[in-house]
């Protein structure tokens, strides 16, 4: 229950914070709480992977991009009021509908309580990943290659009279995220 409090408060601070740098760090706190949920749900490998890949490369990549777009330090008011109210109403309506659907759905669960969950060892996880899901695994590595090439091409400077042929920090940070995801894939 404590984890859910921290999660909801961090998530609200992500979307309602004034300064974007604070929101990025609150996103890291939210992702940490999600990893704690994974440990609670007996998915320890997924928790470690998420901390490594999500917090370790995606949040870092976002911080790099914030540095490069030169966000101003200081307070700024964000939007006009009527859009905020409509968006809050839409989000609240979606949450109510989803919770009603989940509450009334008859899902036959194997275990009733979270402490009765079965513990799956990582050996079985690796078995299932590499025997049943080999094709998505290979496709995911091709996707990573495509995303790496694509983000490098998109972030390159245009060739002007000076000899600027690429944008090295962005290439580096795009490479960091993809190398981390590839390391996790090849584990």
């Amino acid at each position: 229950m404590i984890i859910s409090f921290i999660l909801v408060i961090s998530a609200i601070m992500v979307v309602a914070g004034r300064h974007i740098l604070h929101s990025a760090f609150y996103l890291a706190a939210t992702l940490l709480c999600v990893a704690m949920y994974f440990i609670l749900l007996r998915a320890e490998y997924l928790a470690a992977v998420q901390i490594l890949v999500y917090i370790g490369s995606i949040v870092v990549l976002i911080l790099f991009a914030l540095m490069m777009t030169r966000t101003k330090v200081g307070h700024r008011t964000n939007i006009s009021n009527n859009q905020r109210i409509f968006a809050a109403l839409v989000a609240l309506a979606l949450f109510v509908c989803l919770t009603l659907v989940f509450y009334n759905a008859k899902i036959d669960t194997v275990a009733d309580n979270v402490s009765n969950l079965k513990i799956i060892s990582i050996k079985e996880f690796a078995n299932i990943l590499f025997s049943g899901y080999t094709l998505p695994f290979e496709v995911a590595s091709v996707l990573l290659l495509a995303a790496l090439v694509g983000s490098v091409v998109l972030a390159m400077k245009e060739k002007t009279d000076e000899e600027s042929s690429g944008d090295d920090p962005e290439k580096e940070s795009a490479g960091i995220a993809n190398v981390d995801a590839e390391k996790k894939e090849s584990k």
């Binding site: 999500y54 490369s57 995606i58 976002i62 991009a65 495509a146 993809n178 995801a181």
Partner: peptide, 21 residues
């Protein structure tokens, strides 16, 4: 979930490249 994390990493990389452009 594993493949969703991979896809999210790719999407953030490409999205940030677009934002930079």
């Amino acid at each position: 979930a594993v493949f969703l994390i991979v896809v999210a990493a790719c999407e953030v990389g490409v999205g940030l490249a677009i934002i930079l452009s």
